[in-house]
């Protein structure tokens, strides 16, 4: 089975966000594989181990993203591809989907996996957009995947309910929490990963004209939410605190 995983390098969830000059400050921040993409990588490895084939992880970005690709290879992916977009300005979900689809269009992928959302941009668009551009079906926020021949049985999370459905390969799926427990790279895995192929491509290699993937959206400002005033911790007898709280919620906060 020919399996591809779309991976994004993101800020560590614990990082404090600092905005300067209209941009999120990245200096010194820790970067990780987007947590939802880890589920996708793990699932890809499990599918390969059960059905045979090869797992290729793909990302876009600058050379820094090699680190996340090596981590995916250490987990067990077979090959990695970095599409270098360092010099391309103005990329958004439209651009990313077009670039990835352009790379994937002649790869005859049976299964493409991605996280259902990236924790930085948080739009969740790229996976389904790629599927649509490739003309294949997609299923988002999956929590279980069973492949039998070219038939695929899936459970997906729909706002807490579980939808059970059936579809066919080729297919793109996006991973939801609960799909699996992503493994940690083992030491032998890390050693092996160093020798696994990591291909670096430029947009030119994909015959993509920068103008054709120019962003359709423009971020005009990035800012931090207004700092919250320290809250009021109530004092006194517990019964009085409860009375005071209900009063405050009705008269000061006016939410009840």
């Amino acid at each position: 089975m020919n399996i591809y995983v779309l991976v994004k390098r993101t800020f560590d969830t614990e990082e404090k966000i600092v905005v300067s000059g209209g941009h999120i400050q990245e200096d010194g921040a820790e970067f990780i594989i987007n947590p939802y993409d880890e589920y996708a990588i793990e699932e890809a490895i499990q599918v390969r181990d059960a059905h045979g084939g090869e797992v290729t992880v793909i990302t876009m970005g600058d050379e820094e993203a090699e680190k996340q690709l090596r981590t995916a290879l250490a987990m067990g992916a077979d090959k990695a591809v970095l599409i270098n977009t360092e010099d391309v300005e103005d990329l958004d979900q439209f651009s990313a989907a077009h670039i990835l689809a352009e790379y994937l269009k002649d790869k005859e992928a049976d299964l493409i996996l991605a996280g259902n959302v990236a924790i930085d941009g948080g739009s969740g668009q790229v996976g389904p957009r790629v599927a649509e551009l490739l003309g294949i079906n997609y299923v988002t926020t999956i929590t279980n995947l069973e492949i039998n021949g070219d038939t695929v049985a899936i459970k997906r999370d729909v706002e807490g309910d579980t939808e059970e459905l059936e579809t066919k390969l080729p297919l793109l799926v996006t991973a939801q929490q609960g799909l699996n427990e992503p493994r940690y790279p083992s030491l032998p895995g890390i050693m092996k990963a160093k020798k696994k192929p990591l291909e670096e491509l430029e947009l030119d290699d994909l015959d993509i004209d920068e103008d054709d993937v120019e962003a359709k959206t423009e971020t005009v400002e990035i800012y931090l939410p207004p700092k919250k005033e320290a809250g009021k911790v109530l004092q006194g007898d517990l019964q009085d605190q409860v009375k005071e709280l209900v009063g405050l919620l009705r008269t000061e906060a006016k939410v009840i």
Binding site: S123, T219, Y223
Partner: peptide
Amino acid sequence: GLVSDVTDIEGEGDEAIFIRPIYSGKAFEK
């Protein structure tokens, strides 16, 4: 283009600017 998860809108028509949380609500973008 598509702006997902909009929490507020400034202006209207062609001038509309969409506000959305990023980094899990730790920041916002217009």
